Simulated assay, not measured.
Amino acid sequence: MSQFIFLLTLCGALLLSGCAKHKSYDYTAFRASKPASILVLPAENSTPDINAANSFISGVTKPLAEAGYYVFPVAVVDETFKHNGLTNAHDVRTVSLAKLRDIFNADAVLYIDVSQYGSKYRVVDSMTEVAASAKLVDLRNGSTLWQGTSFASDQNNNSNNSLLGIVVGAVVKHVANNITDESHKIALRAADLLFATNDQGGLLPGPRRHLSGG
């Protein structure tokens, strides 16, 4: 009986600790700011793949627009920076918030870091992963309005019984992913998930959400 009571107590403690780790996101600054337009900066790329940043950024505009925000065209933003001698994400991040506000007249700026991108070949599987984090900052006062992370992969459970079957399947999958650019597909999925689900909280709807029927 005492062991049963101990187990119940332990389960209760685990449940409480689990709840403590998943506090609701504090949107106080976000609601006070009420951003309507978002400037998406070129993403920082900490992966070996040179295509990672551009691939991920290409999937960001759509979910933001569908959420109800005006998003400055990524290509136009990129050309603007290049015209001013800023050719990479690191240099762009040295531009002050006041200067970004002066050039684009946006309400907020989105900083993105891509930390994983591409296919990994392992002994018994081949997996394509994309991971990124983002921070939305108010260009008018510098306050952080929202932060989020996302992760997407094509991992599946192998149903082959033999080790040879598993290895062959992994090789075939790895080759197919490279041919079909599976990483880009996963990047688009991760970009979508960034604003919908993450460890802290999703992005709140913007003022144009009702215009898109959302």
Rank of each mutant, 00 (worst) to 15 (best):
F30R: 01
F4L: 11
A13L: 15
N84M: 11
V175S: 05
R93D: 12
S143C: 08
V137D: 02
S153L: 06
S58N: 06
F4K: 14
K21G: 15
Q200E: 12
S24I: 15
A176K: 10
G214E: 15
I57D: 00
G118A: 01
A29M: 08
L16N: 05
K62H: 11
Y25S: 02
A53H: 01
S46E: 07
S153R: 00
G213Q: 08
K21F: 11
D91T: 03
R208M: 14
L203W: 02
V171C: 09
S17L: 15
V172C: 05
E66L: 09
L8N: 08
L100Y: 04
G206L: 05
T9S: 13
S133F: 05
Q200H: 13
R208Q: 13
T94P: 06
G213Y: 00
I5C: 08
L41H: 03
R140L: 09
L194T: 00
R122G: 15
L86I: 04
N160S: 13
D91C: 07
T94V: 11
I103K: 07
H22Q: 15
K23F: 11
K21T: 14
S46A: 13
T9I: 15
A152E: 01
A20M: 14
E44G: 12
P35L: 02
I57M: 12
L10F: 15
L163D: 14
H174P: 07
K135T: 15
A32D: 10
A152T: 06
D102S: 15
K21I: 11
K120E: 13
P63N: 03
L193S: 02
T128M: 00
L64W: 02
A67H: 01
Q147P: 04
A65Y: 10
V40K: 01
P48D: 09
L193T: 03
Y117T: 08
Y111I: 09
N88H: 06
V77A: 03
S37M: 09
A108E: 04
N158F: 01
S162V: 01
A176L: 14
I112G: 00
T61D: 11
V124Y: 10
Y25C: 05
N177Q: 08
H184N: 10
Q3R: 11
L145S: 02
N157S: 15
V74H: 01
I5W: 12
V130T: 03
I166G: 06
N105D: 15
S212I: 12
T9W: 08
